[in-house]
Design a protein around this nucleic acid. Structure first.
Lengths: 186, 186
DNA sequence: ATTTATTTGTTCACATTGTCAACTAAATTT
DNA sequence: AAATTTAGTTGACAATGTGAACAAATAAAT
């Protein structure tokens, strides 16, 4: 591993760094969220490469189809939650999917505001095909791990996602309450 | 050929999705890349929430600063590779970071085409602060895991990233040999 | 029962991110 | 010396993310 410390002097050490080289500098390569971002970016690029030319849908669109596949028949808001999108994003995505005939929309008899969304037969077919492709891609990506390791990875990610989601909502609610205080704080 | 009936697919009952004795429908929730995307999205949102208001930089900008922190002094292309960005993205990002005084640019004595980039003292200071914050955020996100589990997770991700990167380049070169993007992701 | 507040979905406006191609200037290769 | 490759910049545009305004419908409060 390369270390920055040798370059410390070059880039302007105004802080008269304390003599000890033992104090370890924080390194973004050790940061979980950094690894996560890079791998997710890779994953998206791989998916786009194999899906867009073949099926003519964006990663977001097929993700929505696949989520709707397991949800069955739900209002738009519900679909958005499970997909990790804002309702505004979902509204647009859904309307192009309706135009292309992959999603069907019916009125909700219990609530005049909401709509019920389902996959059309074509949408179900497409989502199956793409999902199969995706599982194949994932196998390639995970091929370096044993089956047991793959399961561990998936389980750890699941737990981290749960915890992070809670953390996120905490941050959000505490941020919206103290809007005026975020000016200084050093 | 799996031929699960439509009724089940649309039932929306995800507590019974494993109960079926027949061929199982593919489910995006079991897809590694889906989990990855959701968690990465969460992570970005959390980061943006705590960093943007406080330091006035976007997630991408601080990531670049932090990468440059460990690289020391490198040409733009090199910085792009390690950050997972295209050189066009990097060129723009760097030029705003130079405007704001976080990055310094000098000519490369060995190559008139390339430039050498380093963190300015302000950039170094900022990257340290944000990196500290980031490690704290990550601790929250990972708080559900034991220390040992965290290490396992990081190690598994590292291996998957390596394999995926190789896979990506295979796909790319087999798709079109002419347009080789030099983004080694490693 | 009427007013008020909340919720659902659509749309607008905009910021960030990602992709590709054209272009220059400087190496490198032939 | 000419052709090719490489480093970086810039333009154009697609995809994604965020927040707010808005109408219609429902729920809550008085």
């Amino acid at each position: 591993m390369r270390n920055r410390d040798e370059l410390e002097a070059k880039s302007g050490n105004y802080f008269e760094r304390h003599a000890s080289d033992t104090a370890k500098e924080a390194d973004i390569r050790d940061l979980f969220s950094f690894q996560l971002q890079r791998l997710a970016g890779l994953s998206t690029r791989i998916a786009a490469l194999s899906i867009r030319p073949k099926y003519g849908v964006t990663p977001r669109e097929w993700r929505v189809l696949a989520v709707l596949k397991y949800l069955g028949e739900v209002p738009l808001q519900e679909l958005a939650k499970h997909s990790g999108l804002l309702k505004s994003q979902m509204s647009r995505t859904v309307s192009t999917m309706i135009e292309r005939g992959y999603i069907a929309k019916t009125a909700n008899p219990d609530d005049g505001r909401s709509i019920l969304l389902t996959l059309s037969p074509e949408g179900l077919d497409l989502s199956r095909k793409i999902l199969d492709d995706s599982f194949q891609r994932n196998e390639e990506m995970l091929s370096t791990l044993s089956h047991a390791e793959q399961q561990i990875l998936v389980e750890l990610l699941r737990r981290v996602t749960r915890t992070s989601s809670k953390y996120y909502h905490e941050l959000r609610s505490s941020a919206s309450q103290s809007d005026l205080r975020s000016m200084e704080e050093e």
